[in-house]
Amino acid sequence: MTATPWYIRGILYVALPAACVAALYLSIPGEIALAQTAGWSDRYAPAMPVCLSVYALAAGAIATYRRRMELPGQVTALAGSLMALMLAMSAQSISHLIAQDYVGSSALLVVAVSCVPPLTIAHLVHMAETPTAAKTTSQQMQELRGVIDYLSEELTASLAAQTLTLVSRASTVVGELEEARDIAESLVDEAEELAGELEKGLKGSSRKTATTLTREAVQRARQALEAQGETPTVEKVCKTLGVSPATYYRHREAIAA
């Protein structure tokens, strides 16, 4: 960034204040004369330059600051500064016109000049009471802490609610698992009982088959088949006895004994 030349800095710090002081000084006679024309005595008339000129400076400074800081109230401050400049310019012009006998005093002029002080006070109070968007660092930190505390409380409440929900669901799942375990144990017991019954049935069937497939039973079956004129083959003998050929061959040694 280029440094500001010395003569520019001199203008900013010397020339501008000097010009403002000179302008205020030149405005004093005309504004005092206008106040006297409106009816103020010599004791109070010197306050008119302070009312108009200082008001114009205050309104302009406030308008510039609010515009630079992007604060609310810029429009009213700017309007007030323009109105103050117009009042100061009008006061100078009217007072000089009256002094040179171009115009004379009138009721309208007296009323207008008399309204200047209350209007100035009203607008200055309005600018002073206009809410500002500027916040100190401590205020911002306090608001940030408030937001953090709020979010922490909301997060804690949410986590607590979710934890309770998960615990409830876990309890439900544990109950269902225990019920499933009981059902599985019951099924195992039933399967063991069924297996025992099947084993008993198979043993009884084996004894029955062994009893049925005796040598005498096979001989009787053969004799019956021969009596009917049929050849006593293994298949026919098994069919007569009601057993399968596999059972016949499995007990063949016992039959042949």
Rank of each mutant, 00 (worst) to 15 (best):
M1C: 10
T4S: 09
T4V: 10
G10F: 14
L12C: 12
V14R: 09
L16H: 09
L16Q: 11
A19T: 08
A19E: 05
V21K: 06
V21T: 07
L24R: 09
Y25L: 07
P29K: 04
E31P: 04
I32V: 07
I32E: 00
A33Q: 05
L34T: 05
A35W: 00
A35S: 02
A35N: 05
Q36A: 09
Q36G: 08
T37K: 06
T37F: 01
W40M: 10
W40H: 05
S41A: 12
S41W: 13
R43H: 14
P46G: 04
M48C: 00
M48V: 00
C51A: 07
S53I: 01
V54L: 15
L57S: 06
A59S: 03
A59D: 01
A61R: 00
A63K: 05
A63Q: 01
T64S: 09
R66W: 02
E70M: 11
L71T: 15
P72H: 01
S81Y: 04
L82A: 11
L82I: 08
M83L: 14
A84S: 12
L85G: 04
L87N: 03
S90P: 06
A91K: 03
A99H: 09
D101R: 11
D101V: 12
Y102Q: 14
G104I: 10
S105E: 15
S106D: 02
A107R: 09
L109R: 00
A112L: 09
S114H: 11
V116T: 03
P117M: 02
A122N: 06
H126E: 12
H126D: 11
H126K: 13
E129T: 04
T132G: 05
K135E: 15
T136W: 00
T137E: 07
Q140M: 04
Q140K: 14
E143H: 05
L144R: 07
V147S: 13
D149F: 14
Y150K: 15
L151P: 05
S152M: 07
S152D: 04
E154D: 14
L155K: 07
A157L: 14
L159Q: 14
T165E: 15
T165S: 14
L166Y: 09
V167S: 13
S168H: 06
S168A: 15
R169Y: 10
T172V: 10
T172P: 06
V174I: 13
V174A: 13
V174H: 12
E178L: 12
I183A: 15
E185V: 13
V188Q: 15
V188R: 14
D189Q: 15
A191W: 10
A191G: 10
E193M: 08
L194T: 15
A195P: 02
A195L: 10
L198S: 11
L198Y: 08
E199T: 12
S205M: 07
R207Y: 11
R207W: 06
K208E: 07
K208Y: 03
K208T: 08
A210F: 07
A210L: 11
T211S: 10
R215Y: 04
A217F: 03
A217Q: 00
Q219E: 02
R222V: 07
A224P: 01
A224H: 01
Q228Y: 02
G229P: 00
G229N: 03
E230D: 04
E230S: 03
V234K: 05
V234M: 02
K236R: 07
C238A: 09
G242P: 02
S244K: 07
S244F: 01
P245R: 06
P245K: 08
A246N: 08
R250Q: 09
R250I: 04
R250N: 13
H251C: 02
A257T: 04
A257G: 02
